[in-house]
Design a binder for these strands. Structure first.
Lengths: 190, 190
DNA sequence: ACCGCAAGTCAACGATGGTTTACATCACAT
DNA sequence: ATGTGATGTAAACCATCGTTGACTTGCGGT
């Protein structure tokens, strides 16, 4: 049970690679991240990336799928999506643990990865719309939810790539009021 | 006067390179853009990038400075910044003419470029705060302006890198109401 | 007409990217 | 204990990247 640490554990190193890749891709984007960076941060040989994920793009797709499932699992009730976003945004994201939502803004050229990314964004926006009391599939209302999602992601991105004060070091208490206003303004159903 | 087209015109090719670079950098980001891509799109030899801009980073800095001056010139009265953002966002940005605001989200590793980018973002946020009726340098109020700026940039980014409907092909008429609500919610002074 | 310099071309360089191949080593079943 | 397949390592491959230097071509003044 206590998982005797093996010197060679495929699942473990696969996980190490995935975690390192998610950090790197989220912080620096796809193109600016090298497979050697990821391997070094994971403390693992470079060639294993191709063994376990077939390619750099394959690894990136795996990262996206990870964010998708985490986001899906995190939502039990459909109307707590705004809180999740607020948590995500105002959570303390150090340089070692960047906001994983950033992966949804990171674009590789790969078609399959783009499809995954778009899929996650769409379902997330749909849940937002539902949480906002949207009459089903009303275009104007879905649009508002997508605008809200864009705002949240832009906030995450700007907070991670710049040091603009007071935004850069604003904690949850400081961030919550404007976020609340933003939600209320774009999801009038709540 | 009528600018007889010269076969060799340093200023003209410099401008061609700058325009091509701004399109490429805005659409694909810094790392994913190749100097040969830029040169080809400009119909110009690759080596001229280094001649006129010293390096790829130098070219990127020049692009940022261009956005800075354009943004500065566009603002005559200080309280029309929201309208400018709305125009920028809802303007038709084809694949050939992406939104130049995206450059403010594109990060190279270069220190000087990052300083320029941060400077533009800060002054832009300050103008937003002033337009929002901010008591000078009130942190909470400046923060709201920066949140608004983040939202606008995130919107521009998501609209350009994904095909999420109805956001992707929303025109000015569709985009204006949620944008207006966003402004009103974050800049209560207006 | 011709000369000098600016403008543009061409080809290569060294570095680094993702990927692959051949090899070494460990874990586990028999 | 031993052989076998899974796991990890080392090194190289090849394409492409940004950059540079030597060269050619055209423009403008004299």
């Amino acid at each position: 049970m206590t998982a005797v640490p093996r010197r060679r554990d495929a699942a473990a190193t696969r996980r190490l690679l995935l975690e390192a890749a998610r950090r790197r891709f989220a912080r620096n984007g796809y193109a600016a991240t090298t497979v050697r960076d990821i391997a070094d941060e994971a403390g693992v040989n470079v060639a294993l990336i191709n063994r376990y994920f077939a390619s750099k793009e394959g690894l990136f797709e795996a990262c996206l799928r990870g964010v998708g499932t985490e986001l899906g699992d995190a939502v039990e009730g459909v109307d707590q999506v705004p809180r999740i976003i607020a948590r995500q945004l105002s959570g303390q994201h150090t340089r070692e643990h960047p906001n994983q939502l950033l992966l949804l803004l990171r674009s590789s050229g790969d078609t399959r990865a783009e499809e995954i990314r778009l899929g996650i964004l769409r379902t997330f926006a749909e849940r937002l719309a539902a949480a906002g009391g949207c009459p089903d599939a009303d275009d104007a209302c879905v649009l508002r939810a997508q605008v809200l999602l864009s705002a949240a992601l832009g906030l995450a991105l700007l907070r991670s790539t710049t040091t603009m004060e007071p935004l850069g070091s604003a904690d949850e208490n400081a961030l919550l009021p404007p976020l609340q206003d933003l939600f209320d303004a774009l999801l009038p159903g709540r």
